[in-house]
Design a protein around this nucleic acid. Structure first.
Lengths: 119, 119
DNA sequence: CCAATACATTACTACTAGGTAATGTATTGG
DNA sequence: CCAATACATTACCTAGTAGTAATGTATTGG
């Protein structure tokens, strides 16, 4: 059983700590581009890493609500929680709103173009 | 002398590692809301922290290009590099573009409203 | 000038956390 | 059924780092 992600205290801190690790960011990248992956499929992408290490990372990502898992027989299917990332990051990004306005235009274009392509 | 920030390899990694520390994020927050601060003014905001610790954080932030410093007599004035944050984060955020489109609208509203207020 | 101020820098310590190895727990093909 | 599969979990080790303390370096008021 995975403990509920605490939305109130230290949520931003936990988020950035999770994103600070390159392995976890790569896991998120892989899930973002392939949609759904098992632990084994993910572990295969990290040749110089032991599978249980990946499992541990997935547990922490899951505890933070960034990914979700469903059982499929004896394997677990992991996928990104669609808007957990954005809802967690937006409050922080908003603090630097004045510094962002110009960059947001570019990002918005990318977002909508990609949505056309993948949806 | 501060070494040039390496834009190519591991830039995103360095960025997230920097943002992972709550003290550094708070420093950025303070600079974002007050514009320009000396080391002493910043250190005064961290009662349970020694000034040289703040100085060290500022050095790493400066090495990554997130903040800039100018001399003013015997003190240094620190301020946020206007678009270093966005240019560093946008490439990464773009990877999750499909997950972002809805949140970007909210952020964009915040960005433009804040720009009216502070500019 | 020079003591005091304002940071920067270095050396050191303690704690965190990513990694592995070993073990535990469901699940299922045969 | 049961051995094998697919993860999860625990214990442990080690490297990286935030913090302090001590020292170094400009700068300036008096």
């Amino acid at each position: 059983m995975v403990p509920d992600p605490v939305p109130g205290a230290g949520a931003t801190d936990d988020l950035f700590k999770l994103l600070a690790d390159p392995t976890r960011r790569r896991i998120l990248d892989l899930l973002a581009e392939r949609g759904t992956l098992t632990v084994g499929q993910l572990a295969a992408e990290f040749p110089d890493l032991v599978p249980s290490g990946i499992s541990k990372h997935l547990m922490s990502l899951r505890a933070a609500g960034l990914v979700r898992a469903t059982r499929d027989g004896r394997q677990r299917l992991y996928r990104i929680d669609p808007d957990a990332l954005s809802t967690a990051l937006v409050p922080w990004l908003a603090r630097y709103a004045p510094y962002w306005a110009d960059a947001l235009a570019r990002l918005r274009v990318l977002a909508e173009r990609d949505r056309e392509r993948t949806r």
